[in-house]
Design a protein around this nucleic acid. Sequence first.
RNA 1: GCGCCCGUAGCUCAGCCGGAUAGAGCACCAGAUUCCUAAUCUGGGGGCCAUGGGUUCGAAUCCCGUCGGGCGCACCA
Length: 597
Amino acid sequence: MPGGFQFSRKPANRATMLQTQTLYSEFSGYLAAALDALEAAGTLPGGLNRGAITVEPPRDASHGDLSTNAAMVLAKPAGTNPRVLAEALVAELAKLPAVTEASIAGPGFINLRLSDATWIAELRAIAALADAYGRSNMGGGSTVNVEYVSANPTGPMHMGHCRGAVVGDALATLLEWSGHKVIREYYVNDAGGQVDVLARSVHMRYREALGEDVGEVPEGLYPGDYLVPVAQELAAEFGDKYVAAPEGDWLILFRTRAVAAMLVMIKEDLALLGISHDLFSSEAELQAAGKPEQAEAWLRAHDLVYDGILEAPKGKTIEDWEPVALPLFRSTKFGDDQDRPIKKSDGKWTYFGADLAYHFQKAESADALVDIWGADHAGTVKRIRAAVAALTEGAGKQIPFEVKLVQMVQLLRNGEPVKMSKRSGNFVTLADVVREVGKDVVRFTMLTRKPEAQMDFDFAKVVEASKDNPVFYVQYAHARIRSTLRKGEGEGIVPADAALDRLGEEELALVKLAAQFPRLVEAAAAAREPHRVAFFLYDLAAALHSYWNLGNDKPEKRFIVAQDQALSGARLYLAAQIGQLIRNGLAILGVEAVEEM
RNA sequence: GCGCCCGUAGCUCAGCCGGAUAGAGCACCAGAUUCCUAAUCUGGGGGCCAUGGGUUCGAAUCCCGUCGGGCGCACCA
């Protein structure tokens, strides 16, 4: 029944319902109805797969406001040609009140032009939804656990951790905007050999604090003087009790105190970047609770773990290689080139052995898992994914698990690579960089390229050329808007929706761009790619700046037009909504929207 | 040798589950400020989308090969 669906848009409802619908999904609905109508009329056979049909803005705005490939996609299975089908569809779509023009272009695209009223309604929707414009319920309230940073608790954060931290944090916010509950989790590797090294390093500093001349820091210990305060505390509390004591007497105490101190430091560093995790999960506690044993038992029962001989690694010649019997996970079944041990020959868990249990633990309280890892861990993705898939499936709840690999950041100073090594104490700390260039610059820079591409971060360049940083371009657009609104207020002109119909082509072009935001947020969340939001903001800022400069030559194109309070009110209303949108986008990225610059 | 990632303008990078003449910044050239902030804008030159096949009505995008770069490949973490 072709007349049985409502064509008119109801922006007020969209606003109040805070639903996931965008202008584009709304038109997908209209298109589906139009196709139904063609089926009912016998023009189109029933039962065609409509999965490949898209409704999106055309690349080139001169083609119109909306474009669909429906005729091209359906023509072949329908046994007709795209133009014929397109003509029938255009006839249906042209009936929509919101459509002012429907045309066929190229190989069979259908382009629609929408009425000004449609865009003005969208502008009102932004105002009504305000800081919620762009939010959706795409995720349906499901819980996603995003694990990121998880740097070893052996020292302050350095720049090597920065990219993953920012990308993970922005992704977490993005998922929240898309209707997910998000758990931001940090896995604390407080059970491996590196924290014993940390404890020994603190012990050395402890002896130093009690007056001993320790001289050069021995090879193999962490040399950083950030260990001094915790050592001093231990010295003050315990005196010389552990100076000559055997390691067994103090190792656990020193390790516990040191890890706690390092975590305090790491949290402070993360706070500088505006990052705060919901949950810090301890590997030591995981092991103490017997989780790895449980996982092992299940995997053994399903023949995924067996006692076998660890082969020599491929592609490397190791001189004194001796085969050794260990419990192995059958990762070769999942594309790995050899089976991997879950325990060491001393009976302790390998990182992998504990990690699979850790992921199983996370899966108990989430519907999906996302890990943000550095690219140097790419080799372990297959085995952990296989193990998690097996474990969660075995528990009767298959939990999707994705690993987002973040490529290395090559740190440069004036074009020269900066070598970093925590062992040597020679590294650029995150805190130093943030203090030097600012949180917003660091975050935005890390988010203006896709994470799987390598990037250079030239320290000097970022500092000195920070004025050219895109983040200021976006912030400036916001500051301009705020400044204009302040100026208007001073003249007694405030944003008003009474005369929105006086907005012209240039103004509505801004609205059209803005209207893509909800769709973009959904797509970015689905692809787990927060950088798309950064690029959108850049485009939006460019459009704003461009419009602004129209007013240079044509005073009648300024936001505030003398002697025309109604028009000025409408323009300020537009400006206010664009400002709102910039704030929303920046909020996803964790970057401040400034009032003035 | 194997696995993963990348290859788009001189440089740094976008390109939205394949879509119409491939986009932006920097740099270069030529312009715009009596004005709500010029940290801005307008215009110009510049590309065999590494390369060879394949799939498709249609490929920078998907698949395979080759070349080039990065990362990883012990019971480390």
